[in-house]
C-alpha cells in the first residue's frame, strides 16, 4: 500500500506537485495520466526517492519513505523506465539479476530466479541469457526491463511510460502481457502514461493530473461516464469516450440468452469488447450478433439496442 498525503514538490520557485493526496491499495494498478509537465513522473519518482518531496508525507506499508535507507527502499521497489536503462556492458541474464546481486543473494538462487523470470516474460533462456542489450529489439529490451524490476519480487512496481517508445503492435502485446502478469502476481503498481488507451486498458484506477494536482480519480468506467470537467473529458477522448467505454466492456457482460429467433450469421466472441462487437455489426450491416465461445458454439446473442443500453454494471 502506498499513501501520499498532501505531498508538494517545488523546483526552485516552480511547484511541480501541489498538495497531492493519493492512496494506492495493495494489488491495485493505478495509472497516473495527464499532459506532459503535469507532475505525474515527479510524483512517481518521489515514491522511490529519486526525487525528494518538499512537503507532506509519503507512506509505504505504513512507514514514511524518508525513514528508509534510500538504497534499501529502492531495492524493495521495482522500477521500469521508458528507455529501459539496461546496462549495455552486461548480458541480459546479468541485467536481470542486478537487484538480487545487490541484495547479496547466493549465486545459485540468483541464477534460478533469472531463469524463472525469463520464462515468465517469454525470453527463452538459451537464446537470450547471453545476449547484450544492443542485440535486442525494443520489445525484448523492455521485457528484460520488466524482468529486472521483478527480480527481487518487490511488492511495489513503479512504471514510468514503460511502453512509450514501442511500436503500436509491440506495445499492445506487452500491455496484454502486463495485464496477464498482474492477474497472477497482484503487485501494487503505479503506472505513468500519456497514452489514454493504455491507461484505460490496464488501470484499476485512473488518476488524472493537471498542473501538479489531481483533477479526478476513479475506475476507468466511472471517469468515462462522468468526467469531472471538460479537461478530463477531452483528455479521455472527447466524443470518442463512448467508444473507449465500449472498448473496456466485454460482450459476455451484456449478452442475452439465446432467443427462439433464427440465429444471426454475424458472430462475435464472448471475450471480445463491445467496441469490437459494434465494429462487426457495422461491417456486417447487422443489428444482432451471435455470441460464440472458444469452440465457436453459440452461447448467446447481442442486439444493437442491448449493446447501447445505458449503464449496466456487470
Amino acid at each position: 500500500m502506498i499513501e501520499l498525503i498532501e505531498v508538494t514538490k517545488r523546483f526552485g520557485s516552480e511547484t511541480a506537485v501541489d498538495r497531492l493526496s493519493l492512496r494506492v491499495e495493495k494489488g491495485e494498478l493505478c495509472a497516473l495520466v495527464g499532459t506532459s509537465g503535469c507532475g505525474k513522473s515527479t510524483t512517481l519518482r518521489m515514491i522511490n526517492r529519486l526525487i525528494e518531496h518538499s512537503e507532506g508525507e509519503i507512506h509505504l506499508e505504513g512507514r514514511q519513505v524518508r525513514e528508509f535507507d534510500e538504497q534499501t527502499l529502492r531495492r524493495r521497489i521495482g522500477y521500469v523506465i521508458q528507455s529501459t536503462g539496461l546496462f549495455p556492458h552486461w548480458t541480459v541474464a546479468r541485467n536481470i539479476g542486478l537487484v538480487p546481486r545487490l541484495l547479496k543473494w547466493p549465486a545459485p538462487r540468483i541464477r534460478e530466479r533469472v531463469e524463472e523470470l525469463m520464462a515468465l516474460l517469454g525470453l527463452p533462456l538459451e537464446s537470450f541469457a547471453d545476449k547484450y542489450p544492443h542485440q535486442l529489439s525494443g520489445g525484448q529490451a523492455q521485457r528484460v526491463g520488466v524482468a529486472r524490476a521483478l527480480a527481487a519480487d518487490p511488492d511495489i512496481l513503479l512504471m514510468d511510460e514503460p511502453f512509450g517508445a514501442l511500436d503500436p503492435i509491440t506495445r499492445e502485446s506487452l500491455q496484454a502481457e502486463l495485464r496477464d502478469l498482474q492477474s497472477r502476481l497482484h503487485k501494487t503498481i503505479v503506472f505513468v502514461t500519456h497514452d489514454m488507451d493504455e491507461a484505460l486498458a490496464l488501470a484499476d484506477r485512473l488518476v488524472v493530473m493537471r498542473a501538479g494536482r489531481i483533477v479526478q480519480q476513479g475506475t476507468p468506467l466511472a471517469l468515462l461516464r462522468e468526467p469531472a470537467d471538460d479537461f478530463v473529458a477531452s483528455l479521455l477522448g472527447g466524443d470518442d469516450r463512448g467508444l473507449k467505454e465500449a472498448a473496456i466492456i466485454r460482450v459476455a457482460e451484456r449478452m442475452q440468452p439465446l432467443s427462439p429467433r433464427l440465429l444471426p450469421r454475424a458472430r462475435v466472441h464472448r471475450d471480445a469488447t463491445l467496441r469490437q462487437a459494434l465494429a462487426v455489426m457495422f461491417r456486417e450491416h447487422a443489428d444482432r450478433l451471435a455470441v460464440v465461445d472458444d469452440e465457436d458454439m453459440a452461447v448467446g446473442e447481442l442486439s444493437l439496442r442491448r449493446l447501447v443500453e445505458s449503464r449496466r454494471e456487470a
Partner: peptide, 27 residues
C-alpha cells in the same frame, strides 16, 4: 553515458561507489 542507464542504476538501488565501479567506469 546514457542518462537512462544512470537513472536505472540509481532507481534499482545501487550505491554511488557501486554505480561508479560497476557501471560508469566500465562504460
Amino acid at each position: 553515458i546514457d542518462p537512462s542507464v544512470l537513472e536505472a542504476a540509481r532507481g534499482m538501488g545501487m550505491g554511488g561507489v557501486q554505480q561508479l565501479l560497476q557501471v560508469e567506469l566500465p562504460l
